[in-house]
Design a protein around this nucleic acid. Sequence first.
DNA 1: TTTTGCTTGGGACATATGTCCTTTTGCTCC
DNA 2: GGAGCAAAAGGACATATGTCCCAAGCAAAA
Lengths: 232, 232
Amino acid sequence: MRTIRDPALLRSVMDEHRLSGRFGEKTEAVMELYRFDKGEMICRAEDSLDHLFILVKGKVKIYRVLPNGKSILLRFNNPLSLIGDMEMLGDLKVHNTVESVGESLFIGIKRQALADTAGEDPAFLRFIIKHLARKLNTNSSVASLNILYPVETRFASYLVAITADEHDRERIEELKASKLTEIAELLGTSYRHLNRVIAQFVAQGLIERTRGALYVKDIAGLQRLASGTLYS
Amino acid sequence: MRTIRDPALLRSVMDEHRLSGRFGEKTEAVMELYRFDKGEMICRAEDSLDHLFILVKGKVKIYRVLPNGKSILLRFNNPLSLIGDMEMLGDLKVHNTVESVGESLFIGIKRQALADTAGEDPAFLRFIIKHLARKLNTNSSVASLNILYPVETRFASYLVAITADEHDRERIEELKASKLTEIAELLGTSYRHLNRVIAQFVAQGLIERTRGALYVKDIAGLQRLASGTLYS
DNA sequence: TTTTGCTTGGGACATATGTCCTTTTGCTCC
DNA sequence: GGAGCAAAAGGACATATGTCCCAAGCAAAA
């Protein structure tokens, strides 16, 4: 992690995401820029965090490692998502590992500043609340989807989500994974089983597979399979 | 739903939960008391909510109905939990059904008052944030637990949680269920399968079953099975 | 080029879990 | 006490998913 002291860059980043003027002046004053390199960890379980981060550039991968050593990929996050909100604002321990996928840029607010300044700024607090609410919403949708539907349905739903790129481009990005093993983790299944489902979809003419890449052929058919359970 | 105009009762309820003086005066002024009868719905999917509710007495059951007609019990909530936070504060649609288990009492804040008054009160907003963060935390723990461990482990974890009543009584209550069918739903499995696991636990001497009731005999053994995955 | 290693693709088998049905048990109401 | 009912207990079978392997393709390193 490197602190970037470049007011002009901070300004332009805030403009880009329409954050300028959105919070109180005092809150803006305590914001700083931080950069993480590819593969660098923003936090991992049991860490104690000193900053609340707002991702403004790049992409992070959030996963959880469980006592039995297994891990589950929770999601990918793209700009304007919060890291450390639960920990800093809810007095909770870190449970998830957050890793920078490429190089990424964050606006950070130190713990002390959060308590003194931002914690008294209603606009900032409402911003946090809105993000928390959306996170919770996504999270519980995915959770119930995971437990009530077979991998077949979830994978169809996943494909529809990353393919239909008209609206909601953001949420889609949040779930995008490259390698098949990662998709398997995201869906909470084994690579082997995902593979079976892929083979089945190919047999049904829903998708096509060529040396590793997948091509959606029948989005309507996939939608039928997902039957209204879209990741959302 | 009935509005209860009884300032004295409101006062005593707020005292009981140490809410008095915690928020700004204006915020306190827009709080009202509401009562729901046994089995009454606080909200259900696609409803539009007009209030943010804080449960102060009773117990509510939160579940989600999915497009395929299946439903999953998400959790039971006990006093001082929020209903409608995601919807009112995150501009989201209602996705979960919330049902009053017995008779229950809420402090409610109307949508308009929320925007005008409470939404400008940092103390109130921090209260909301803290609750959202905890909800999210519980939710994602349970979600990964559900997907990565077999029912056997989850049920052991559940039993440990509701049995170890020393510390954390609140969180435990949140997950307590009476009938076995309800436990099955909570664990996201079928009653049949839960039954199998129970039979297995009995055979291993971990629990005892007598006309419907279960008695924990070997909490240490259950803890070993749960292996650090406690619902938390 | 060979080697090494990661990713893909898939066979064989074991296990976890779901669905459907029947039987039993304990209760309440007549 | 018997009828009727809801919850509980469990048998039989089907399906979903995991684990363990092995083999092939491709790309970077040696």
